[in-house]
């Protein structure tokens, strides 16, 4: 059942460029890029409860790093450029994460919001290298002999990178690191009492989150082909937060679903710019009211309700345990 679903999904994802018009291949690439950002943001906000309204800033750093490498070091293979974009952004994440250890909730949201503005200002002021408001045209990158000159080629690149990053996120989530991050979210004092180094894991969440978003930024530069500071405004950061709320906090598949929903909505509402905030707000409120765990948890509940004979989440009443002889 699960395998069949995965196989069907793989066929759909890989076959998509041959079945839909070119524009949708571009849109699908954008969804995949945003999925990576959503996973990164979820590692920070969903897993350790550190809310960020500055992820457009991380995306911009990754995007400009990737673009400048493609322009000035065309011999560098794409995977290496993406890795550097991720590492540079991760370093910035570390630098932001350490002072943010002292902040929580709204204060952290404000600090990350400010970070997003600072990044845009920095891009504007570094115009000798970023070309400021004129924008930066990103040439087609090369992967060995293949030029990634078509939407289809770029789509497959994003899918391959995303597949690796999703697998890694799932692996992290279900082993020691992922549990420690969740433990920090659930109870800081109990996590510490279990030997979890609070500051280290909160900072690690920032670094990981920035790395994912930086790699996504490198892909974003290649997919969109043109960068300017206004592509990375605060509304993009809010969109990322919307993705993980709609998709499901603390869920990797939820991040992907949320990215798909919000990116598609954004695209279909492009003609109604004035109503966009209204419609978005309504969707967010409805999602939090009726689907507090996001799409991921709603789907889980549906599948649980569908499976017959499931004992449910209610534990057996406090009956005497086995081997209990008072």
């Amino acid at each position: 059942m699960r395998r069949a679903a995965l196989a069907t999904g793989a066929v759909v994802v890989l076959g998509l460029p041959w079945a839909v018009p070119r524009y949708f291949v571009f849109l699908a690439s954008l969804i995949v890029v945003n999925s990576i950002v959503a996973i990164g943001l979820n590692l920070l906000s969903g897993y350790t409860n550190q809310l960020s309204f500055g992820h457009a800033g991380f995306l911009a750093i990754g995007a400009y790093t990737g673009a400048l490498l493609t322009i000035h070091a065309p011999a560098l293979p794409v995977p290496a450029a993406l890795l550097v974009a991720g590492l540079v952004t991760a370093a910035v994440g570390l630098a932001l994460g350490i002072p943010c250890l002292r902040l929580e909730g709204l204060y952290l949201a404000m600090a990350t919001l400010a970070f997003g503005f600072v990044v845009v200002e920095a891009i504007l002021n570094l115009d000798w290298i970023t070309r400021g408001n004129d924008g930066l045209r990103v040439p087609a990158a090369r992967l060995g002999p293949i030029a990634l000159a078509t939407d289809t080629a770029r789509y497959y690149l994003t899918v391959a990178v995303a597949a690796l990053l999703i697998l890694a996120a799932l692996n992290i989530a279900r082993t020691r690191t992922g549990r420690a991050l969740l433990a920090v979210r659930e109870s800081e004092i109990a996590a510490q009492a279990s030997g979890v180094h609070l500051a280290a894991y909160k900072t690690l969440a920032f670094v990981l989150s920035a790395f994912y978003t930086g790699v996504a930024g490198g892909l974003f530069a290649l997919v969109v082909g043109f960068l300017s500071p206004d592509s990375f405004d605060v509304f993009l950061s809010v969109d990322f937060v919307a993705m993980i709320i709609v998709g499901g906090l603390g869920s990797v598949p939820g991040s992907v679903l949320g990215a798909a929903v919000i990116t598609t909505l954004n695209d279909s509402l492009a003609g109604f710019q004035n109503y966009r905030p209204l419609i978005f707000g309504a969707i967010l409120i409805a999602s939090m009211l009726f689907m507090p765990g996001g799409i991921a948890s709603a789907l889980r509940k549906l599948s649980v309700a569908g499976a017959a004979g499931y004992p449910g989440t209610a534990p057996p009443a406090a009956k005497p345990r086995q081997g209990d002889d008072p």
Binding site: R179, A183, E186, A190, A191, A193, S194, V196, G250
Partner: peptide
């Protein structure tokens, strides 16, 4: 102070951290 949204076994696994 259990980790409320984690399963019981994951709670114990955090203890093993």
């Amino acid at each position: 102070e259990v980790f409320r949204q984690l399963t019981a076994i994951d709670n114990v696994l955090v203890g093993r951290h």
